[in-house]
Design a protein around this nucleic acid. Structure first.
Lengths: 153, 153
DNA sequence: TTCATTGCAAAATTTTTGCATACGA
DNA sequence: TCGTATGCAAAAATTTTGCAATGAA
């Protein structure tokens, strides 16, 4: 909302604005997401949360993530290889997309305005309002592509 | 492979080429996918298959879909709203993408070469070889966007 | 004090696996 | 016949839910 707000303050405001309450668990999950440079799924978040609060329950993590999503503090992402598993990232992170190398398994982030341009062109072309765009890319990274001129998969 | 081949013949060839066997279940699942104009998940495929073969098991559906995917007879897709659930489509269908309206729930298919162009540009830009691109779009369809100038979600 | 939130355990959902039997080539 | 594929049941993996107890405002 406000340029001076930290994510925690923003969350606090959003929670109260919707008749919800700030709890230590919610603050903790948000902090973990904000501080992490890695991609976190619910279970990983749980493991990190337990280091701070050994009683915290996995169900609480899931419920908290739903609330954080509603408060627009986190985004859900998916990886091409493991689409079923939800990955959570703070919305404070600049918009980006993921590329998964099917050979070495590395997941790299990249950002490009090509996707944004495509997005707005598509909005006009198919006549809809896009609120969410998911782009998952999969293939061979530069290094693996070189070693691998003959691809079976 | 060959212009004269039906999907069933192609499957048969691919199966044999990889030391696998054609079975009535595999033929049936492929037929269901080829004939359907809707989006099918594993359970729906199972229901339709049972109409033809009441003994067929859901585990067989899953195993068959894995094989059909390996034989490149089906593609896996996802919808923005329900990312976790896999949707299977025959590769004989022309390439297309899905847009989900979060208001009315309708899923529409569209195809555009914008995405293909973006794809090849991205390949160069980030220096990778893309083997799979997943694009899920979500938002408001034309009709719902009109009724809905004020959007909460 | 009040009601949203949590912890716990149990259930739900979707997909995978082990194993004996059936069946395609 | 030989070994792949199936059916069945049980397990695995991930997420959700019911409910009594807790705790924020």
């Amino acid at each position: 909302m406000d340029k001076n707000s930290t994510p925690l303050i923003t969350l606090n405001q959003s929670l109260h604005a919707s008749g919800r309450r700030m709890t230590s668990q919610r603050a903790l999950v948000l902090k973990i997401l904000e501080e992490s440079t890695e991609h976190l799924d619910a279970e990983t978040i749980w493991e990190r949360a337990k280091a701070q609060d050994e009683r915290i329950n996995l169900a609480t993590i899931y419920r908290t993530l739903i609330v954080l999503k509603e408060m627009r503090m986190v985004d859900l992402r998916y990886f091409a290889r493991d689409h079923k598993r939800e990955i959570y990232e703070p919305t404070s992170k600049p918009e980006h997309y993921h590329f998964t190398c099917t050979k070495c398994g590395n997941i790299t982030e990249f950002s490009t305005n090509r996707i944004n341009r495509m997005r707005s062109q598509l909005q006009n072309e198919i006549g809809v309002v896009l609120t969410h765009t998911c782009v998952c890319l999969e293939g061979y990274c530069h290094r693996c592509a070189e070693k691998n001129t003959h691809n079976t998969e």
